Simulated assay, not measured.
Amino acid sequence: MLEIRMIDKEDLGSVSGFISQMNISEESHIGYCGKDKNEIAKYMVNDISDVKYTDSFVVAYEGNKLVGVLGFDADLDDNSAEIWGPFILREKWNIVYEMWKKMAEMLPKKIDSLEMFPNVKNTRVCQLSSSLSFKKYSDETILIFQGTNSHELKSTSVEELSPEYFVDMVQLHDEAFPNTYYNGQQIIKRLDDHKKVFIITNEGQLCGYIYVEAEPEFGEASIEFFAVEKSERGNGIGAQLLTGALKWLFTFEGMDSITLCVNSANVNAINLYKKVGFEHLHDLYTFTKNIGQK
């Protein structure tokens, strides 16, 4: 007998394992949900914070067997939510609309926009987004740098962001990425031993920056944002920033790989990443939907 209900804490282990198994396959892959069971569980508990995962996820069980998971990660400051899934066994896909309805009832009234980030080969979620009146916002490419190639990185000189460059870094970031998930001030607030901004300067002027996050516990890291001042483009600043950030990230023991996401139309950036040593991993779509005030 099928049961669709809100998640509870006792479900966390089975849910994180289920998402991990589903997200390994490109046919059910969602871009921001991870592939490591323990990392997924840690994220759900610690980082899905504006609305706790126990109030933002639904599960579907057939008897004692977990057959579906669907949830959202809300950003109440931005009035938006990222959709996790749907992760549903292929043979049970017909329950997707029932699960969606249950999850939608849990969305806070403040939420006025939704985002889905499926792999292009995840045709079921791509078709679902269309049937739910989502619009395709962009095509994205995921690239990966394998730790086994880190010895090939050249020496370069970058410096860690200091307070005297906060204003310039925020301005450059917000101009380069005006509608993204972290603005410049949010990045500065996130900085710690595992989250760093590196910069290159010239005679007291900021030339460019790069923001990276390390997850040494799981042997992973990501390059979140980087930008170069227009006047400095073509001078190799981007390659220096990338190389310097990679060299720092690989100082963590057990760092296996580093990923980044770039708009598929940004051919120059993709070529730069590949020149430094990144390889193609996934292609994804970003779908968005304005749901207005309820």
Rank of each mutant, 00 (worst) to 15 (best):
L66R: 04
V69I: 15
L70H: 01
F72R: 03
F72L: 14
F72G: 06
D73E: 05
A74G: 07
D75N: 13
D75H: 08
L76A: 08
L76P: 00
D77T: 11
D77S: 14
S80R: 10
S80W: 06
S80Y: 06
A81Q: 09
E82V: 05
I83Q: 05
W84I: 02
W84K: 01
P86A: 15
I88P: 01
L89I: 15
R90H: 09
K92I: 01
W93A: 15
W93E: 07
I95W: 04
Y97K: 11
E98R: 13
W100F: 08
K101D: 08
K102R: 12
K102V: 09
M103H: 03
M106K: 03
L107P: 06
K110H: 02
D112Y: 10
D112S: 10
S113V: 00
L114E: 03
L114M: 07
M116I: 09
M116A: 14
F117Y: 14
F117A: 00
F117N: 09
F117W: 13
P118V: 13
V120D: 05
V120M: 14
K121V: 07
K121I: 15
N122D: 06
T123D: 09
T123P: 04
R124M: 10
V125R: 00
V125Y: 07
C126S: 14
L128R: 05
S129T: 03
S130A: 02
S130Y: 12
S131C: 13
L132W: 01
K135N: 09
K136L: 04
K136P: 01
D139M: 00
E140M: 15
T141I: 11
I144M: 14
F145Y: 08
F145E: 04
Q146P: 01
Q146Y: 11
Q146N: 07
Q146T: 10
G147Q: 02
G147W: 06
G147Y: 02
T148H: 07
N149P: 04
S150V: 01
H151A: 12
E152I: 09
K154D: 03
T156R: 02
T156F: 12
T156P: 02
S157W: 06
E160R: 05
S162E: 06
P163L: 15
E164K: 07
Y165N: 04
Y165M: 10
F166D: 08
V167T: 13
V167L: 14
M169T: 07
V170W: 03
V170F: 03
H173Q: 08
D174S: 11
D174I: 07
E175D: 10
E175Q: 05
A176C: 09
P178S: 14
P178Q: 12
P178F: 15
P178N: 15
P178D: 14
N179G: 09
N179S: 12
T180L: 11
T180F: 13
Y182A: 02
Y182W: 07
Q185M: 15
Q185E: 13
Q185C: 13
I187T: 04
K189R: 12
R190L: 13
R190W: 07
R190S: 09
L191F: 11
